[in-house]
Simulated scan of single mutants.
Amino acid sequence: MTVVSTTKDDEALSLSIVADLAAPPARVWQLWSDPRQLERWWGPPTWPATFVDHDLTTGGRATYYMTGPEGEKAHGWWRFDSVDEPWSLAFEDGFADDDGTPNDSMPTTRAQVVLEEIPEGTRMTVTSSFQSAEQMQQLVEMGMVEGLTGAMGQIDTILAEG
């Protein structure tokens, strides 16, 4: 499994997941830049993602939905704050209604992805920052930790394919 640590920091209102991946940063970057590869791992194994739009540029947006085991759909969106290929990206991450409109009744988080070269390949750190302890607790209770860990656990298979 790729995930080496998960850290919930109540003081900093953040959740960080670190994965060591057996591929160079340029290859790992493709997991974020290619929506077809992103679909193969973003979301828990039982909730695969479909990206409708994906503009990985500063100021760009992505919209997607995850499909659950019973066919139910959970929609989401990203707005990219910064993109530094192949080293980092940062984006606002939120829930959306069925038509893709941001759902303001649900929490919005900020995600920071950092890729660093290590002897074995790449260390990927994904840090989600929350606006309040209540929002962090709400998303943790919804299964965010298990969901992200399960999602990132699917990456090894994609990288092994080349």
Rank of each mutant, 00 (worst) to 15 (best):
E146N: 10
I17L: 15
E39I: 12
G59H: 06
D81L: 13
E120N: 06
R40N: 06
D97N: 08
K73F: 08
M66K: 10
G143T: 07
A96R: 06
T125M: 10
D84N: 15
E39Y: 07
Q135T: 07
G100A: 06
G143H: 09
G71H: 14
T149Y: 07
D99Y: 04
R123Y: 10
A96I: 06
L21K: 03
L21V: 12
T58M: 05
V28F: 02
A23P: 07
Q137H: 01
W41V: 09
W78K: 00
A26W: 01
F130N: 05
W87I: 00
E39D: 12
D55L: 07
S82Y: 02
T149E: 15
R27N: 13
G94L: 06
S16V: 07
W32A: 01
M142H: 04
L38V: 09
A90Q: 15
E117H: 08
T101H: 00
M144K: 00
L21Q: 05
P107K: 01
D53M: 07
G150H: 10
S82H: 12
P45H: 04
F91E: 12
E117P: 02
G68K: 03
Q137K: 05
M106R: 09
E120H: 07
A90I: 07
W87V: 02
A19F: 11
S105C: 02
M142P: 05
A22R: 15
E134R: 02
R27L: 10
V114K: 03
R110S: 10
P102M: 04
M124S: 13
L38A: 12
N103I: 02
E116K: 11
S14T: 15
S82C: 09
Q137M: 01
R61K: 15
L56N: 05
H75P: 12
L15I: 12
A12H: 01
P45V: 05
D98S: 06
Q138C: 02
P119H: 10
P24T: 03
E92Q: 14
W42R: 04
V145F: 14
R61V: 11
I118K: 13
P44T: 07
E134C: 01
A111I: 15
F51L: 15
G94I: 03
P119F: 08
D10E: 15
Y64L: 14
M124N: 10
I17K: 00
G59Q: 03
E141C: 02
S88L: 11
D99T: 05
M152A: 10
F91M: 14
S88P: 14
Q137L: 01
R123L: 08
T67H: 03
F80H: 13
G71M: 12
R61N: 09
I118S: 12
E146C: 05
L38I: 03
G59V: 10
F91T: 04
D97E: 09
D34I: 04
V52P: 02
R110N: 08
W77P: 10
E141Y: 02
S105M: 08
D93L: 02
P25V: 13
T101N: 03
A19W: 01
D34M: 04
